Simulated assay, not measured.
Amino acid sequence: MSRRLGSSVAGIATAAAIVVLAAPQASATVDAITVSGSDPHTINTEYTLTANLSGAGIGLLVYWTDNGNDLSGPKVPWPVGFSSITWKPTTPGQHLLTASQGGSTKTIAVNVTDPANPGTPGGGNPSTPGGSSGSASKGLGGLLGGLTGSAGS
């Protein structure tokens, strides 16, 4: 009787292992990104970037970038379902902030100003040539506006 029970348990364990190996890879989803503070965001000020995560791969590492440049290296999501880092922009203009986990990404566009130099691109004075609402900025914003928040959706 004990041999039969042992064989049954071994058979069930083998079947369970086959089902787990044959299952599709766990997916992760970056649901949303938020930035602390309110507009206008300014250079040399610290903000907190937070990503809400879900999916079966919720424990996968999270990568943060600013205009494609790494911000933090890989981060373990903690608490589970969230990832946050401190971000301190040093340049004015539009910043595309992206959180990636597994194959999922989400991007948010944030305009950063330099209050000490309002005539520079992204400087915060739309009436000054080269300000954050110039025609080149509007064209880029229009082009990127369709991408913002839709990556990985």
Rank of each mutant, 00 (worst) to 15 (best):
M1D: 10
M1L: 13
M1K: 11
S2K: 08
R3C: 02
L5F: 10
G11R: 06
A13C: 10
A13H: 08
A15C: 06
I18V: 12
I18L: 13
V20F: 03
A23E: 14
A23M: 07
P24F: 07
A26P: 07
A26R: 10
S27K: 12
A28M: 01
A28D: 12
A28P: 07
T29V: 11
T29I: 00
T34L: 06
P40K: 04
H41L: 13
T42F: 07
I43Q: 07
N44Q: 15
N44P: 10
T48K: 10
A51N: 02
A51I: 03
N52I: 14
A56H: 04
A56Q: 07
I58H: 00
I58M: 12
L60V: 01
L60R: 00
V62G: 00
T65F: 11
D66S: 11
D66R: 12
N67C: 11
N67H: 07
G68I: 14
D70C: 02
L71M: 15
S72L: 10
S72C: 12
G73H: 12
P74A: 05
K75Y: 13
P77V: 14
W78P: 03
P79L: 12
V80D: 12
G81T: 02
S83A: 12
S84R: 12
S84C: 02
K88N: 13
T90I: 12
T91D: 11
P92Q: 02
Q94P: 09
Q94M: 06
H95M: 08
L97W: 03
A99C: 13
S100N: 09
S100I: 14
Q101F: 01
K106V: 14
I108T: 11
V110I: 04
N111E: 11
N111L: 15
V112S: 13
T113V: 15
T113H: 03
D114N: 10
D114S: 05
N117T: 10
N117A: 09
N117E: 11
N117P: 10
G123T: 08
G124C: 05
P126D: 03
S127I: 15
S127K: 11
T128F: 09
G131L: 15
S133A: 14
A136I: 08
S137M: 03
K138Y: 13
G139A: 13
G139D: 14
G142R: 05
L143G: 00
L143F: 14
G145K: 04
T148K: 04
G149D: 10
S150A: 09
A151D: 00
S153Y: 01
